[in-house]
Design a protein around this nucleic acid. Structure first.
Lengths: 199, 199
DNA sequence: GTAAATCTACCGACCGGTAAGTAGAATCAC
DNA sequence: GTGATTCTACTTACCGGTCGGTAGATTTAC
């Protein structure tokens, strides 16, 4: 394992996480062998094991990276937004952007957790649940402001996630639609489906 | 392989497809070994191979079953509905119901197709594309009736699928929410997100 | 009796993972 | 400054185990 935080080995580790995350996204965790990752990086399987202890731990590190990305780009900024509607719009747009831009570590968060150890799985599930509750509480605020339509709030929250989590499975940045257009459209659909119209 | 359509072997085959579909849903195709399926059915691996030629072919049969279910319960009836809005509501509600009721074959349609042969994959993708285009064309009709909000129709169609495909990953029939409530809520959210409000 | 259905016993391929070794850069002793 | 030593970042070669899959014997149902 890379002993200290030397720039070089740190960069290399990041390269490895990125390449592995892409393969896990494209083929799935179980269908990706450690040799696949190695050959994508033009090195040997044994060489990879210098950077992590097991394939499972590699997955856990990638998922943790993804959760950190969401925390930095979505959750932490969103916590500073007081208005619930504005906050929800921010969360949806920015999570959608991460997904559409092809941040594979973020995309993997919601799949493949069965492959983790019990402890790792619990850690990931707790962080995901915190995220879910944060969004759910935002909907509760909207409800109290009488801005929410008559839907079950839990169902609504999950359905919001469904819209965004499906994005990376169909959206191609190389196509006609820009990331910004798609994120805006998805966010608009979601909000209009939830909120009472006041115009 | 079961030679003829005798009731007995046909029933047994169905049992096998059901058990395998459930495991594929719960653990994923690659993480489910043929022995896992066998022990779930209290028989041996070799015994299973009397009913299919390969694990891959078993998956293809299950996916085909799922596509047939959607055709029977959603697409064929929907084709008879003339009003576009009513048709869309029917499609969403009934596909959501299949998903929420735990029809594993249906749920698997949208995952695991990477494990298929090229020909099988093309077949599945074509059927899925037909479905997608049918829904998309329904949105085009709504657009022409000036009933659709200003969203990209392709994005909207994919987003509808996202809402429904995510359903089986979180909904538990054993919980507080009934299948009917959830399907109605999801469908309402989707339609209200899409359609201009006329009240 | 016979055909359908299932079992026992096994195979080769590939998987995740490891032991042992090494080129070359960095560090140390003087 | 330079030779000895240590560390980083790998490689080659291999292992035990599990996987999908099969041949052929055996049981079951009628």
């Amino acid at each position: 394992m890379p002993r200290n935080g030397t720039q070089k080995s740190h960069d290399r580790a990041q390269e490895i996480y990125l390449a592995a995350a892409q393969l896990f996204f494209e083929k799935g965790f179980e269908s990706t062998s450690v040799s696949d990752i190695a050959s994508a990086l033009k090195m040997t399987k044994a060489g990879l094991y210098y950077y992590f202890e097991s394939k499972q731990e590699l997955l856990f590190r990638i998922v943790t990276l993804g959760l950190d990305s969401v925390k930095d780009a979505v959750l932490d900024p969103a916590h500073l937004i007081e208005d619930a509607e504005e906050r929800l719009r921010f969360i949806l747009t920015n999570h959608a952007r991460l997904a559409a831009e092809g941040n594979h570590a973020v995309i993997i968060i919601s799949h493949e957790i069965n492959a983790l150890t019990f402890d790792q799985r619990v850690t990931v599930q707790n962080r995901r649940r915190d995220y879910f509750e944060f969004v759910r509480n935002t909907l509760v605020e909207l409800y109290e402001e009488k801005k929410l339509r008559d839907v079950d709030i839990t169902t609504a929250t999950f359905t919001l996630f469904g819209m965004i989590l499906w994005l990376p499975r169909w959206y191609r940045a190389s196509g006609k639609l820009s990331v910004e257009t798609v994120c805006r459209d998805v966010c608009d659909m979601a909000l209009r489906g939830l909120m009472v119209q006041r115009n």
